[in-house]
Nucleic acid binder design. Structure first.
Length: 451
RNA sequence: GGCAAGGUGGCAGAGUGGUUAUGCAGCGGCCUGCAAAGCCGUGGACGUCGGUUCGAUUCCGAUCCUUGCCUCCA
């Protein structure tokens, strides 16, 4: 199967060819664990989860998604709460993992912690200093951007544009405004580690370079993350890694997912419009959230609103509705069309349309046997997207309703119907609907689902 | 201002140099005690202006508009 990916580096869709024809390495930037994850934090994991599922069919995949448990925002959060830093990082790591599991995201092969790789980072800094790509200044170590001619190649930024993005101006401690920090001193309560340059902590770009190298080697097949990480984060990762090696690229394919807007405004800290996964899950079933992500191609922005949620739920109704009367179906091999859609730069909207094509065939099938065969393909295909993981009955009946009461009323209604007392039957229908459940009379008898 | 992406039918959202996207919603019909689900049929689209072409929503140029990145961010 030919897999194509849009490479942010070349700004074009390319045929995916791994370094090793049998093995693939993928590194995706994970969360900084200092608060509850919002839905924007979940889009990437869901998309790369779909990509991982596809890649695992073809290759021996090693997928790493790191946990950033070393960051000033974490120290701030711990300080605000008056608790130990590890309490904050462990709590939010656990919450993040729970939320991802809820959304059907399979675990990566490894979730390394930044704090467990300080020696690797120090080693990389030392190499950069030895190679004259970095310099020490007053307890800090800076990467010297002018020593790397290609700096800016990934994000396609000129020197002037790079400067406009720096916060700290050239000063007595920095030679060049573009230089970024590799190591900085820690004082007071701020955590730190001993290093050749004094007690301190690493800069925020370094962990990915160090951990990617340790576990996956010098050049990754795929490096992923949100599009807002392209600059400066990924640009700086490239600079560090390439200069500490011999100029080999950090990754052959750079894959970036788009952002989520909320009422057409980007969801971000500065906008104060973060929608937490945890809060959303109180109202919406997790599979609906996943469906909402897959509705739009991963590189485009998603506008998050009630219509998206309701549409996504209805799509799942149609998928599950097609297999509802078929009993237990085990997943089969996915359809070629669905596979090809995902292989074409993770075109999940196209893949969904292929799923609906199968649904149509199931609904038109002439025999139960044919339906079941198609349903098996449908479920196998949906699993590639991480959908349809539960029984159709559970999808429709799922909920906090009083099943016993509804079943009782249904029995009563059936009795009324068989006596052709339709007035009573409709009355009971009203009663049941007031409980938030609707009835569908089918050839096998009535079934119900949540409104 | 610089860089990047995009403007598709009522909404969401793929795709294509000439042929039905798909889902939801609408309309007509079948089915049903009534419904629902499902099925059949149906209307409605490619921002604007030029160019290339036998033919462009699809390629090229211009223009208007939108959005993102350039500061923490996924």
């Amino acid at each position: 199967m030919k897999i194509k990916l849009y490479n942010s580096n070349t700004k074009s869709k390319e045929l995916f060819v791994p370094i090793d024809p049998k093995k693939v390495t993928m590194y995706v930037c994970g969360p900084t664990v200092y608060s509850y994850p919002h839905i924007g934090n979940a889009r990437g994991p869901v998309i790369f989860d779909v990509l991982a599922r596809l890649l695992r069919r073809e290759f021996d995949l090693t997928y790493i998604r790191n946990i950033t448990d070393l960051d000033d925002k974490i120290y701030q959060a711990a300080d605000d709460e008056g608790v130990h830093i590890s309490e904050v990082t462990q709590r939010y790591t656990k919450i993040y993992q729970e939320d991802m599991t809820a959304l059907g995201v399979e675990k990566p092969d490894l979730e390394p912690l930044a704090t467990e790789h300080i020696p690797e980072m120090i080693e990389m800094i030392q190499v950069l200093i030895d190679k004259k790509h970095a310099y020490e200044s007053q307890g800090h170590v800076f990467f010297s951007v002018e020593t790397f001619d290609d700096y800016g190649f990934l994000s396609n930024r000129t020197e002037e544009e790079q400067i406009s993005g720096t916060r700290i101006k050239s000063s007595e401690i920095k030679n060049n405004q573009r230089d970024f920090v590799l190591w900085k001193p820690s004082t007071g309560e701020t955590p730190g580690w001993d290093s050749p340059w004094g007690f301190g902590r690493p800069g925020w770009h370094l962990e990915c370079s160090a951990m990617a190298k340790k576990y996956l080697g010098r050049t990754l097949d795929i490096h992923g993350g949100g599009s807002d990480l392209l600059f400066p984060h990924h640009e700086n990762e490239c600079a560090q890694s390439m200069c500490s090696h011999s100029g080999e690229p950090l990754a052959n394919y750079w894959v970036h997912n788009g952002m989520i807007d909320f009422d057409n405004v980007k969801m971000s800290k500065s906008e104060g419009n973060l929608l937490l996964i945890r809060d959303l899950l109180k109202e919406i079933r997790p599979e609906v959230i996943r469906m909402a992500f897959l509705t739009t191609h991963y590189r485009k922005p998603i506008n998050w609103n009630d219509a998206l949620i309701s549409d996504s739920g209805k799509k799942l109704d149609r998928l599950y509705g097609s297999i509802r009367q078929l009993g237990k179906i085990s997943p089969g091999e996915p359809s070629e069309e669905v596979l090809n859609a995902i292989a074409d730069d993770i075109n999940t909207p196209k893949a969904l349309s292929e799923l609906f094509a199968i649904v149509k065939n199931i609904n038109n099938a002439k025999s139960d046997e044919e339906s079941r065969k198609l349903a098996s393909i449908l479920i196998g295909s949906a699993h590639l997207l991480g959908l349809m993981n539960q029984d159709a009955e559970i999808w429709f009946e799922n909920i906090e309703v009083d099943k016993a009461l509804i079943d009782h009323l249904l029995t009563e209604r059936e009795a009324a119907r068989s006596n052709r007392n339709f007035e009573r039957a409709d009355q009971i229908r009203q009663e049941i609907e007031s409980l938030g459940v609707t009835i569908e009379d089918g050839p096998e008898g009535p079934v119900w689902k949540k409104l």
